[in-house]
Amino acid sequence: MDETGEIRRIWQSLGLPGLVDVHTHFMPKPVMDKVWKYFDDAGPLVGRPWPIAYRTDEAHRVETLRGFGVRAFTSLVYPHKPQMAAWLNQWAAQFAAATPDCLHTATLFPEPGVTDYVRAAVDGGVRVVKVHIQVGGFDPTDPLLDGAWGVLADAGVPVVVHCGSGPVPGAHTGPGPVAALLARHPRLRLVIAHLGMPEYAEFLDLADRFDGVYLDTTMAFTSFVEEVMPFPPTQYGRLLDCGERILFGSDFPNIPYGYAEAMGVLTRIPGVDADWLRKVFHDNGAQLFQL
């Protein structure tokens, strides 16, 4: 069976209408090209060879996801310096308008004016925000961001946040800064990318403490990650018990393996059942984004 057939077999066998993938990347071509070059060069934030599995043009990548049966996906953009986020938000708004199955995405950076452009994005119908603490190299509790976090908390817009210390630690990664952020803005809806790897247990702790904390499965349990940041078997039960707030994410197209593996590994978690998989692959995301 080809890859598309295998992917469709998984979700069809669960009786689902398709997939919701909360962690996919679409960016302006010059930005995506630079991101791919960074992976090709195994840059310092990557730390190891990382071939891009789906290195095709934008239109082909959209059609690939549709062929897999992805009903809704994201264009997770993120800045690495000031005066970049507002431009990325404009591009992402235009991309979502032209691509109805892409959730309107935005991002932010600690800089003057961030509250204004985040409020403009919310007023413009943004559905999800991406924050990359590792790449941005900033503290999420930076006072410059306080107003923007308040806007997002009030609007209930989910924020996919890369805050774990994988693949390599950053100055502000780990559960501590996120716990401090939630202490100030407890109503934030945060989707912890990559299950918070490698601090899996600590981010599950935050999900226990805050009703608005979700986790996405991006790259977790794949052989690529298990080699260096394995999910602790002692936490399987907690992950399954937290099934209402686990969301499927793939990191498409920037993954060094096939999309079918990203799905298949979840079906082999010890103790997993069809109900958990239905929630993770579709129902939780559909509910969170009101699809």
Rank of each mutant, 00 (worst) to 15 (best):
A96D: 05
P112W: 06
D101E: 13
V131N: 00
K81G: 07
G136I: 01
D101T: 15
F138E: 09
V151P: 04
C102I: 04
L88S: 11
Q90C: 08
L108P: 00
T115S: 11
W91M: 07
A96K: 07
Q90P: 00
E111H: 05
T141W: 00
D146A: 15
A96M: 08
G137H: 03
K81V: 11
P143E: 10
V114C: 15
A121E: 03
G124P: 04
A98G: 14
T107G: 04
V114N: 04
T99Y: 13
A120F: 01
A121R: 03
A148L: 03
A92F: 12
V118T: 02
F109D: 00
A92T: 07
Q94A: 15
L144Y: 03
P140V: 06
A93P: 08
A148G: 04
L103D: 03
A121V: 10
F138M: 00
H80L: 14
W91P: 08
Q134K: 15
T105F: 05
P110D: 00
V129T: 02
V126L: 04
V131D: 05
G150N: 09
A120E: 12
M84G: 08
G136F: 00
V122Y: 06
F109R: 04
G147P: 08
P110W: 00
V129F: 08
G136V: 01
V128C: 12
T105K: 12
M84Y: 09
L145C: 10
E111A: 01
R119Y: 02
G147K: 06
T107N: 11
A121C: 08
W91T: 05
G113E: 07
F95G: 09
P143R: 05
Y117W: 09
A86I: 13
D139Y: 04
W149M: 02
G137L: 05
P112S: 11
P110R: 04
T105H: 04
G124W: 05
R119G: 09
V126P: 00
T115I: 05
V122P: 04
A106Q: 00
D101Y: 13
L152Y: 01
G125M: 10
A106Y: 02
C102S: 14
E111Q: 12
T105D: 07
V122F: 06
V118E: 02
G125T: 14
W91G: 08
L108A: 10
L144K: 09
H132T: 00
V151Q: 02
W87P: 03
G150A: 10
R127S: 14
T115A: 11
I133D: 07
W87E: 15
P100S: 14
A86M: 15
G150K: 03
W149S: 05
P82D: 01
W149C: 00
D139P: 10
A85L: 02
A120I: 10
M84K: 12
